[in-house]
Design a protein around this nucleic acid. Sequence first.
DNA 1: TCGTGTCAACGAAATACTTCGTACAATCGC
DNA 2: GCGATTGTACGAAGTATTTCGTTGACACGA
Lengths: 127, 127
Amino acid sequence: MTSPPRPTPGELEILRVLWERGPSTVREVQESLGPARAAGYTTVLKLLQIMSEKALVTRDETARAHVYAARVPETQTQRQLVRDLVDRAFGGSAAQLVVQALSGRRASPEEIEDIRRLLDEIEGGKR
Amino acid sequence: MTSPPRPTPGELEILRVLWERGPSTVREVQESLGPARAAGYTTVLKLLQIMSEKALVTRDETARAHVYAARVPETQTQRQLVRDLVDRAFGGSAAQLVVQALSGRRASPEEIEDIRRLLDEIEGGKR
DNA sequence: TCGTGTCAACGAAATACTTCGTACAATCGC
DNA sequence: GCGATTGTACGAAGTATTTCGTTGACACGA
C-alpha cells in the first residue's frame, strides 16, 4: 500500500474546501472556491474524479449528487508539502525554511509565542 | 519591470547548482547535479536556454562554452516559494507552516537557537 | 407524460514541463 | 588540413495538469 500522491495545485484548492466544509457535493465545492480559483462545474467535477482515482478523496454515490470527502488529513498533507519544499529549495534544512518564512512577514505575537513553545518542546524532548 | 517567474522543479535544481558553484558552463552544471536529478547534457542545456529566456539566468557568450549565472538571488527565490506554499496550503499563516516544518523533526539545537534569536528580533522590531 | 433543470461521464483541447535526438559549428591534436 | 571532440541550436515527443463542451441519465413538477 503506497501513500497517496502529492496533490497538484488545483487539487490542493479542492482539498482545502473539503477540509473546511467536510463532505461535499461537486456543486458545493465549486461554489466554495475562492474567487482567485473560480472554475466551471465540470472542471471541478473532473478534478474530483481524478482525485478519486488517486485516492485523495472518497466518493459516496448513494445520492444522485455524489458526496466527496477528503481522504488525506490536512496536517499530513501540509507536512508532506513542507518536506518537499525543504528538500527542493533548502537543501534539507527545515530551520532555513523557518527563517525565510518568519523574516519575510506577518506573524502575530501570539503565533510567535506558539512557535517558542514548540521550540521548548523540541528541545525538551531531546534532553 | 516584472519580477522573474517562479522556477519549475527542474529549474530550481539548476539554480541550486549555480548558487553553489557560481557562474558555470552547461557541462559543469550537468556534472554537478545530484544523482537524484541526473539529466543528459542537452536536457540541461535546454533548461538553461529556457531559463535564459525567462531571465532566471544570465548568459555570457564570450567563450565558446557559454557561461550561465543565476540572476535571481537564492534568498529571494526561497522566500517566494515559501510565500506560495503558505498561501496555497496554509491559508496565509506563515506560523502554521513553521509549526509543521518544526514538528516534522530534524532541526539541530544550533538551528533552534537561530530561530529563537530570529523571534527575538521580530518581536523587538515591533516595539 | 413531457419539459426543464441537475448531474455524472467522457473525451478533446490547451498549456506547461521535461527529455532527448539530430544537425551543424567551432576547436583541438596531429 | 582533417578527423575527433565539444559545444549550441532546434525541434519533436512524452507526460502532467487544467479546462470545458457535449452527451445521456435522472428527477421533479405541471
